[in-house]
Simulated assay, not measured.
Amino acid sequence: MKTQLRQSLILLLTAAIWGTSFVAQSVGMDYVGPFTFNSIRSLLGGLCLIPAIFLLDRLKYKNESVKPEYNKKRTLTGGVCCGIVLCLASNLQQIGMTHTTVGKAGFITACYIVLVPVLGIFLRKKAGLKVWASVALAVGGLYLLCITDGLSIQPGDLYVMGCSLLFAVHILVIDHFSEGTDGVRMSCVQFLVSGILSAIPMLLFEDPTFSAVCVAWMPILYAGLLSCGVGYTLQIIGQKNMNPTVASLILSLESVVAVLAGWILLGQALTLRETCGCILMLAAIVLAQLPGRKPEKA
């Protein structure tokens, strides 16, 4: 029980870090462009994971003669593929956050949890009634969150929806490469790839200056070191020997933390209509992660 409680607290801390990082992303946009923010953030996250790799290896393999076994080529390939998708997803999210609130961005992004089983249909993975009920709840929540009285959608919400879809693809790519790879090493590669790719449009479309980056140092460091590096490492540690359903339910609180952080730190209060949309989407997220009924024994 003590171990389960400790693991749950670690995952709760992870959700809090990821949820509050939406505030850092929003504040950082006051000083630098979206591609600049994501490039520096991702590179910091990748560099932060390098010492974490050595630390986790020493904790897992106390005997120095025993080396971790993993497929290096598959780990590198998986990291590159994940980095490409992550680059597209994170930049769409960052651009969208310039036109929407932190709370709405957090909840719309969390829709990837519902989209993952839906996209799995194209990979010949069956989706049950529970999944379609989650989709219906999510669509209703998105309508209340994003669609105004004139049946129009804000550009920022549309960008974040695209980001949510790409994050769902990102999870499926991770699932494809997970077997035989080292998770932390693959994550390190994906962050470095995402940072390098984000630097290309940064140099083409933005005019980053050293002074602007220095002014935005706090949100960039928070999003890079804590959200990318520390957050992912805590997720790996927290999910060890943990029920995956319980773990995913705790991590889904990220969207709730994003709303509370945007309200407390930035004063971005939600209307009653938007609050109802958040409740529906949270219900969809929880329902999508509940375990299905086990088949009865013959």
Rank of each mutant, 00 (worst) to 15 (best):
L137S: 05
L88R: 00
A127H: 04
G79V: 13
A110P: 03
G141P: 12
L123E: 08
L129Y: 14
V102S: 12
M281R: 01
P34A: 02
L234Q: 07
S152W: 00
Y61K: 06
A133G: 06
A223W: 09
K67P: 08
E296L: 07
T20Y: 00
M242E: 12
E206D: 06
T209D: 05
S198V: 10
V257P: 08
I285E: 11
L145E: 05
L43A: 08
L280Y: 08
E69Q: 13
P291M: 09
V193I: 15
V184T: 13
R185K: 15
S187W: 12
S65K: 13
A247P: 06
T75K: 11
V193Q: 08
G46N: 07
T148D: 15
S26Y: 15
L265G: 00
L137E: 04
F191C: 09
L55A: 14
P219Q: 07
L253V: 07
A136K: 07
F54N: 01
G19P: 04
G162N: 02
A199S: 13
F210Y: 11
K130N: 05
R273V: 09
T209Q: 12
A298W: 12
I171F: 15
L12W: 10
I95F: 10
V85Q: 03
T36P: 05
I108F: 03
L197A: 01
A284I: 03
Y61T: 02
F37S: 06
N91L: 10
M1A: 11
I285Y: 08
